[in-house]
């Protein structure tokens, strides 16, 4: 479906195609919506929270602190990044659900239902963790921190490639997990809705659209879970990079 995404603005930078298609537009719409909502909430912040938005945002912040940063062992300095990742995935994933009935047929899809989008986020976290590891431990410490503690001698030669591969697979697993979970529901939605074009029957239509509505709600739930899982694993990756002093 992404191959058929409509291009709204053709942009080329040398060999790189930076065109703005429906997926990119949906991403920007989600990011814009998120920023506007956050701006509206913070504009009317009160000392004693009264608005639903403020309560929700403060709950999200506390959730980040207690359910992601604390278990991962990160301090509050990483909260904005984790909160951004969580909200960004949530907001780019939720439009998929909201436009679910229209999206699959119109070729719409967000960054989190596209492997390129999830890979970009996963690689960003991976690069950040490498940077943090390098900054924290230095070049020698960086190399040493890749190995488990206490490993010496010829075992190092055996374990080093394995550990490097394991580190490299982390962003892959992050990207594929998010993509597969988000696009799984999406494909299921397409499959169910495709029955309407095969069987021209009112009962099939009702069943298809009823099932699609159920799946959309399920996708909301999956989106929340995946936003949490991605942020938590990303935070764990950074925490591991910070904490692995050898």
């Amino acid at each position: 479906m992404h191959e058929s995404a409509k291009v709204f603005l053709a942009l080329h930078l040398g060999r790189w195609d930076l065109s703005v298609d429906a997926t990119v537009l949906l991403n920007f719409a989600a990011a814009f919506l998120l920023i506007v909502l956050l701006w509206l909430i913070t504009r009317r912040l009160t000392f004693a929270p009264r608005s639903f938005g403020q309560n929700l945002l403060e709950t999200a912040v506390e959730f980040m602190e207690k359910q992601i940063l604390a278990p991962a062992g990160l301090d509050k300095a990483w909260l904005p990044l984790c909160l951004s990742a969580f909200l960004y995935i949530l907001f780019t994933g939720l439009p998929l659900g909201m436009l679910g009935l229209l999206g699959p047929q119109a070729g719409l899809g967000s960054a989190v239902s596209n492997i390129n989008g999830t890979a970009a986020l996963a690689v960003l976290f991976f690069v950040l963790s490498l940077f943090v590891r390098f900054k924290k431990h230095g070049l020698w410490g960086f190399c040493k921190s890749l190995l488990p503690q206490g490993v010496k001698g010829p075992v190092v030669i055996l374990l080093l490639p394995v550990e490097i591969i394991s580190q490299l697979f982390k962003p892959f697993s992050l990207a594929i997990r998010l993509f597969a979970n988000m696009s799984g529901g999406h494909l299921l939605l397409i499959s169910i809705l495709s029955f309407t074009s095969i069987f021209n029957n009112i009962a099939v239509w009702l069943a298809s659209y009823g099932g699609a509505i159920v799946i959309i709600f399920f996708e909301f739930f999956v989106c929340c879970i995946q936003a949490y899982v991605f942020t938590f694993l990303g935070a764990s990756m950074i925490s591991e990079a910070i904490g692995e002093a050898t």
Binding site: A31, A111, N116, G117, A119, A120
Partner: peptide, 11 residues
């Protein structure tokens, strides 16, 4: 590349 780029930009 466009999705990777704009995803990183929007994020």
């Amino acid at each position: 590349i466009n999705i990777v780029f704009w995803t990183l930009i929007s994020f």
